[in-house]
Design a protein around this nucleic acid. Sequence first.
RNA 1: GCCGAUAUAGCUCAGUUUGGUAGAGCGGCUGAUUCGUAAUCAGUAGGUCACCGGUUCAAGUCCGGUUAUCGGCUCCA
Length: 644
Amino acid sequence: MTEISISVPGEEAKTVEAGISAQEALKELLSKKQRKQAIAALCNGERTDLSAPLQTDTVIEPILASSDEGMHILRHSSAHIMAQAVKELFGQDVKVAIGPAIEDGYYYDFDRDTAFTPDDFAAIEERMAEIVKARLPFERRTLPMTEAITFFSEQGEEYKVELLKDLEQKGENSVSLYQQGDFIDLCRGPHIPDTSWLKSFKLLRVAGSYWRGDEHKPMLTRIYGTAFFDKKDLKKYLNRLEEAKKRDHRKLGKQLGLFTIQDEVGPGLILWQPRGSLLRKLIEDYWKDAHYKHGYDLLYTPHIARQDLWKTSGHLDFYGENMYSAMEIDEVAYQLKPMNCPFHIGVYNATKHSYREFPVRWCELGTVYRYERTGALHGLMRVRGFTQDDAHIFCRPDQLEEEIFNIIDLNLQVLKTFGFAEYDVYLSTRPEKYVGSDEHWELSTKALQQAMDKKGLAYAVDPGEGVFYGPKIDIKIKDQLGRSWQCSTIQVDFNLPERFGMTYTGQDGAEHQPIMIHRALMGSLERFIGVLIEHYAGAFPLWMAPEQARILNITDTQVDYCVQVHAELRKAGVRVEQDLRNEKLNYKIREAQMMKTPYMLIIGDREMEEGTVTVRKRNGENLPPMTLQEFADLVSQECEQGTA
RNA sequence: GCCGAUAUAGCUCAGUUUGGUAGAGCGGCUGAUUCGUAAUCAGUAGGUCACCGGUUCAAGUCCGGUUAUCGGCUCCA
């Protein structure tokens, strides 16, 4: 018998016989309490089943059920169990494709003549429960590639065969299979030791999806599910889904009277209702103010331009599919703009420029139109006409880093004002196909990196994911429910200055080409407002609340006083409305509450006599009666804090 | 665009299985009530049942098509 040494990181090694399982090894090294939570193991850095035999010296770490990795394994195993249940119930009708774990759950894709419906869930879940109860072990085995192909071919599992052939091409000559009960699946693993580990699970929805995400390949039927070690966690998760549903901006948008989308107008086109329009105006005002303070000048440009412009810019070539077809005006073709950049360049090229005036910073809330496929449209999040909070900066190469720094600075400030303090940042570098010199790419990629370092911004690199015209930084914000949204983007562009022959006179008296930076902070106002609605669940901070306060009288006696209060507060700059209907106070409070009004001003005889208002906050808290001036000051102070 | 589901009053939904020309609650309007921190009572007006076509003596209901929406895929601000 050979002997091997095993250890957990940082602890003393033990000598054991070779061939013991990872589980037994953990038993040697850890207390019972510690290893009870182990669902799999990390052996010399590799994820392994607990049943895996150890043949060489091994540093072993338990993968705990409570860890992200543990959850991932559980859900992956749950996908296998679901597939087993489906195969057992629907047998030969079904071919299996792939079934990975994803964030918050897992899915499995099946090929079946008739798609699954949620009506099938009960039966599948029931069968899954039986499989769990049967405590079937997950057994791993490795098979030579040719045998594996033969095996799955015989089963008629053509998708597995296709996967195997791809692996074979990549030079793999053996694969691992996992079996629980009679169900055998191609899988890298690891898995839970046996099916009984799956304590709580739920199937969530069905959807179609292309085989390998390719729209030219067959459409499969996908079942999404989720799994947890604990019933309580499942319940928490389902509650979170409920919460997300309650915050759905389409629902809140209707309830709060913010926007509407109508068939008569067209899909993906937003009609802003008065409250939504005011909300948007407040956001736009803040944005313009912040930009002015950061050295930007404001531009306005048209919605259409000659088709030739889009030829020059290259949009017709590389973005034409997303553009609406041309309209003819005086026998000349014009097209709706999908982007604002060519117009800003037009402004630039209207005059001669010197290196002395750089950097030039121009911003615009520019409304663009892009063709989106019908299936992609979604409330405010994905529309066909939207307003970018666009800006273009033109500068010299030596100013690039500082400009990027300034943009990031403004960017983070704006995000913070809107209540987003958490984000993931990505740097996308040069792709395979690109324009511009290597030197330029290197210079600007470095400038992006150094600016982020200087700002102390942590980021991940997406190698080769840059746009063909330059490297970029993307910022994905995290909302109240922890979901991320891509909004901000900062892109260097070597392409358009070239195409439009942009120049400036340098210190040397010669003509040079400026560097161009595109950037958007909110991305699209429509989408950003959608995110804001869900982030705040419709209860906007005071500074952007379309209705900051609502006057509620108790009886008709106070009507005249209320009208006076209303007028005075409006004069003092408070966005105040009044509800003077002959209804009970409770009724009016309920309504104001459902509209998420930040402050309710309650006026009865007492207030009328004393010339005050009683303030009820939307969290139910009451403030002592105060004068109109005191309330107006409170509002303006809170607003200032909100946008500081 | 693709797969699946859905479409009834301003809103939320019942009625569709078993065809016999529409119903509730909220909201609106009218009246009564004058009320202190999340829905006062009564009366009343709202619908070519998304649209087009077919089957039938008869279609909200069955069949086909179109449009839009929803869950995904793909794409993306």
